[in-house]
Design a protein around this nucleic acid. Structure first.
Lengths: 301, 301
DNA sequence: CGGCGTCCATAGATCATGTCTATTGATCGG
DNA sequence: CCGATCAATAGACATGATCTATGGACGCCG
């Protein structure tokens, strides 16, 4: 049994006439006659009482036709929905973002993304790198904004922009008097984020330390960390996009001598079919942040 | 798009594995792969993200799959219902019966019909001949029990049994003293049914009258007619099966000299597909009434 | 790190079947 | 009794579903 056969059945029931039903279905009358007879044979039920005068549905047909109508309607609904889902630049797009990036990047790119991809319903999801990678791999995210390389052939990534780190100091810190701070000078009293944040490892690596100091307080979020530094508990190293928030917290920011920084990338499953959506999002973010990256390259933030 | 394709889609979504899905569908893996790819092309939507490791439905697929499931379920329901409708000796059977027959025949044949055709749900419909023929022709009845021949090639009929008429008299009527009454003797004061009852015309014809007497009361039903005769308003001629009811009404019954009577037939549309049901019903009634017909032929009721 | 197994995609051949045009048969009306 | 109408049938044709065999990508394991 075929959906086409059910459409033929409905057409004959509606028109009560093989010729007109065939015309409505866009086929010849013999075709419709044959197919309907085959349907009757497969069902084992006579569907119509045929006369040269009229074609009347049997009672069996009357009881079956509701299901036929429902099946055809569902198939048509599926086709219509497929048409609306056809655009890869439309629909839900679940985008993971690491916590040290989300609060500072999203406000910058949200409006441009809406403007460039109006049909794309971006759902941000904030979590640490490893969790995002896991969610990418189990298909609960479509793409993720990270500050690390991704490994494995199942994932692909594209560089979006370079984000320089900055030394963040309380105004009364000794280094606050300097124009430029060398990364190693921060090592002595640097505060870092909790385990799992990629920024923690990158900050430690930038100033030549392999691990955090024993007993060092580990902030669970960047805003917390900024407040700790502002309160004079130590120094830290922040990503450039957080500069505004850091200044608002009353911190003094200084460029780094060796220009340590991180590269923000977008990552996705290599086989993810809506590649166009990923590229679209990536293009918008890269374009929006181009000036920022240029400024960073010039050493000015 | 095809119901088969939708079944393939559901199988792949369920198993997450082309090979096992193909096995479940009873086809080879390449077949399923090709058909699914074609489905993706016709829909314009990628349905699965394929890896050698796993096959994951896309978000678009997740939204479409509900409709696919519904369409397939409706089709399956249709097939299941068709299976149950396949037996022509099962299901509703709308049987018209003329009013001068129904109350006396139905009690005789109801139980035998239930016993012989347990799956046939017979729905009796009591109306006069012309209305029954109309309903037969417009498909609102499946068959009808009549006491007249039917004309036209669109209808067919089969004789079931012969039903003799009897003279019905009030006990104090002059003719009640006789053993046998000649049909013509009833003509003088015979009461008849209202227009439209075939019994009316047949009774008049039997006693040689072309029309009813002027001012004669025309009962709208046979029970009413019996009571009128019992009350002494005249004589009448009743169908044999009504003998019991007539005696209960206090009437005297006498056989007719010329053995006037009527033939009860079952009629149906020549193209009616459930011919087996008609034959089944006809056989049961003819068998049940065979003794009656023999008795009638022998002159004893 | 190289063979091996798993899994989906592709190629080419084959077979089933849906569709067409032309025609027949049945039925009805003038 | 003849012509019109309508569904069924016949035969040719083309599409398309399916199969087996094979290729290519990937992960596993010694």
């Amino acid at each position: 049994m075929n959906l086409r056969d059910l459409r033929y059945l409905l057409a004959v029931a509606e028109h009560g006439h093989f010729g007109r039903a065939a015309e409505a279905c866009g086929v010849s009358q013999p075709t419709l006659s044959i197919q309907l007879r085959k349907l009757e044979e497969t069902l084992g039920v006579t569907l119509f009482e045929r006369t040269s005068k009229a074609v009347a549905p049997t009672t069996a047909c009357a009881r079956l036709i509701g299901h036929a109508r429902a099946a055809v309607a569902e198939a048509d609904a599926l086709l219509a929905m497929a048409r609306s889902l056809r655009d890869p630049l439309a629909g839900r797009f679940r985008l993971g973002i690491i916590p040290t990036l989300a609060p500072y990047l999203l406000p910058l790119v949200y409006a441009p993304l809406r403007a460039a991809l109006p049909a794309l319903e971006i759902e941000p999801w904030e979590e640490q790198t490893s969790a995002l990678l896991e969610r990418l791999r189990d298909h609960s995210l479509d793409a993720a904004l990270l500050a690390t390389e991704v490994d494995g052939p199942d994932l692909t990534s594209r560089e979006l922009f370079a984000e320089p780190f900055l030394a963040a100091l309380s105004p009364d810190h000794a280094l606050a008097a300097r124009d430029v701070v060398a990364e190693e000078e921060l090592a002595a009293d640097m505060l870092v984020l909790a385990d799992g944040h990629c920024l923690r490892d990158q900050a430690l690596a930038a100033c030549g330390r392999s691990g955090a100091l024993g007993g060092t307080l580990r902030a669970s979020s960047l805003p917390t960390l900024l407040n700790m530094v502002a309160a004079g508990y130590g120094t830290t190293l922040i990503p450039g996009l957080a500069a505004g928030a850091a200044r608002d917290a009353g911190l003094v920011l200084r460029p780094l001598a060796a220009r340590a920084g991180r590269v923000v990338r977008i990552a996705w499953r290599s086989r993810f079919p809506r590649h166009a959506a990923v590229e679209g999002v990536a293009d918008v973010i890269a374009t929006r942040l181009r000036s920022f990256a240029r400024g960073a390259a010039a050493g000015a933030v």
